[in-house]
Each structure stands twice: as structure tokens, then as C-alpha cells.
Nucleic acid binder design. Sequence first.
DNA 1: ACTACGTCCTGCGAGC
DNA 2: TGCTCGCAGGACGTAG
Length: 263
Amino acid sequence: MPELPEVESIRRQLEPWLIGNKVIAAGSHPSAKFSPATEAIGMTIESVNRRGKFLLLGLDDGRELVIHLGMTGQLIPVEETSDPYLRAWWEMDDEKILGFRDTRRFGRIRIVLPNEYEGTLAQLGPEPLSEEFTPEQLYEALKKSSRRVKTQLLSQKPVAGVGNIYADEACFRAGIHPGSRKISKNQAKRLHAEIKNVLLIALDNGGTTLRDYVNVEGVQGKNQEFLLCYGRWNEPCYACGGVLKRTVLDGRGTTYCVNCQQR
DNA sequence: ACTACGTCCTGCGAGC
DNA sequence: TGCTCGCAGGACGTAG
């Protein structure tokens, strides 16, 4: 599940390779989730940006090639295109091929004008590592909904780029129960700080690899060695020594400490 | 408009 | 050993 740190790691590696490169050929899986990939044929890539978990490749006709990696998506150079899990590929004019591997096909590709974003991309909250993301803004954003705080984080509306791993990590470090439907200004302040913390630490560690994530060089992240909470149910809480608990909140697996994270 | 839940998709691990 | 079955999850669709 590539989240902000993983997508940003990929973006940084793609940028120097792709900028100024022209797509001379492309192919895709027939599904509408991937078929827009071929619309990039003939286009030169002018920018490689990111919003939340979305990669945005700026094309020379003013449109953007939007790539979401879903759960198992990988962007890696490939030698040939026979890999059964290769859902899309773009051959560049440097003769290298950028491949989009995605075993579970939860990823998505589209080509849109920047002022015609739809769905989650159109409603993304601020970038968590930007000045726009503040404790006050997070508090006000969370106040707009009665949904659980973790569910709101996963919605991408209060802040962009947080997924299941970093939502659990941030809630744990902030001492906030992920199922809370209302949090105080002080809690919002702590949550704001910890969202930034967990994302920066993960970025520093090259992202979290649970199974599928690799960067453009095919290298796994090492942040999984530093997770304090996610996936550690039935293991001791590093803060209080109690046993971390696993539950399901709005359909998503959630790990938390019943002692350190009270409503 | 909002909330809650089902759907997509496939590999894997638990259990028989 | 070999099989079935349920789980994992981000975004989106749908129902109420």
C-alpha cells in the first residue's frame, strides 16, 4: 500500500529520468483502469509531481498522466513487456521502458486536465509536509465530519497521502483512539505533529515494504523495521508494555493500544 | 449532503 | 499433501 513516503520516493527517482523524455510507444491491460496509459503516446513529459498518493506526470499538451499505485503498484524499468502483472508500459525515446506492475489491479491510470480533476484527487486535503497543513486546519477539517478520526484520515480530505499504516502510526504516537469521532484542539495539535513525524521518518527510511513495495531501482524500503504500532497486534506496546489490540474500524484493520489510546 | 458498507482483485496463510 | 476459504486494502459505487 504505497502511501505518501513511498510515492514520493518513486517521484524523486522518476523525475530526473522522465523529464524531457518523450513517450514513443505504450501499451496497457484492457481494463478502463489502465487503458488511458496509451493516450500519452507522442507526448513529452515536462514535470513529475505528486499530490497525496497520486503521481502527476505533466505532458506537453497541458494534460497530466495521473498514476495511482493502489495497493501493489510498482513503477520500474522493464526490459520486455511479457510480465503477466504488467498493467501498463511506456517506451521513452531514451529506449528505456517504464513499467507499471500491479498484481491486484487496484491501481489506476488516467489522463486529465489539471482543472478537471475528479473524485478523491479533486477533494484532496493539503500536503502534510507543506505550510498549508497546520494544527488549526486539521482541527477544523476533522470537525466537519462525525466519522471516526482514522476513517477521516483515510478519506484524504483533512490531509493528503495518509493510508492505513501511517494512520495507525500517527494515532498511536499522538495517543488518540483511532475510533474517536471527536478530538480536542490539543489532540489535533498532537495528531498534526505525529502525521508529519511518521511521514518524514518513513521517507527517510525509503518507505515501508510489507510485501510489494519497491522503488524505481527495485529496492525495498526499511521503514517496516521502525513501525511502532501497525501490524504489531498481540505484541507489547513500546510505551506502556500492554498488549496491542487489533480491531476493524469501518472495514479496515486497525491496531492500537487500549491503555495509551483512549477515547 | 452525509454515513456506512459493498465491490474490485489476487496471492497468501490458516485450517481441514 | 492438497484443497478451500477468508483476509488484506484505496478508491469508488451505491443505498439509505
